[in-house]
Amino acid sequence: MNLTLKVWRQQNAQAQGGFETYQVKDISSEMSFLEMFDVLNEQLINEGKEPITFDHDCREGICGACSMHINGQPHGPWQQTTTCQLHMRAYKDGDTIVVEPWRAKAFPVIKDLMVDRRAFDRIIQSGGYISVDTGNAQDANNLPIDKHKADESFAAAACIGCGACVAACKNSSAMLFLSAKVAHLALLPQGEVERKTRVVNMVDQMDKEGFGSCTNTQACEAECPKGISVQNIRRLNAEYIRSVFSGD
């Protein structure tokens, strides 16, 4: 199929960006969206132009590196799919596709479609871990964990930190990401020790990074490639209130 692509090009964080229009020909419906971009980049290199910078790593839908805002939706039109797992059969011959980077004050553009998502790393550093002394790993069954809680925690841990929630949110809020990290640990006995300080520190860090506030539109859940539920945001709110009222 032949496609028209309108892609955001921006030299660096300070530069004024803009859309460039490209034509790609003979794209197979079995290609992934990123492979289609590889074809476009080879074409640009052959023409002596600068290829488009975009984030990607595993191309298996598990690393959270890819981050394109495609025709108004983070990771494109398919439900619970990352950009790398979006395939060209989602489009038909003659389509025009608009590709933009994640847009948020906390995610400044590095170049073209690549944004700086280190704000997420700093949120994790502020509390998204458990402190354990090193030593032999104990037998897994020594710690009884309720099956329901284990399942909820596992579902929250599926978050790959891609930032689609921020990109989808009209407020650029990172609440779905943060809530997944908080819920994942708060539900398990290992996370119990730092439970109260974790949620407060992580929320403080999120605010410092310049993300917006949640207004419960639920666009994040609809666009999340891992199907993280806004039920985690409910849990985060409860954890936060509990911590504030019962903290030292």
Partner: peptide
Amino acid sequence: ENRAKRPVGYAKTPGNKSSK
């Protein structure tokens, strides 16, 4: 405050696809 968190907006938005 929330409006200021996205200084550069999107050219294309999802409309009603992901939220009411």
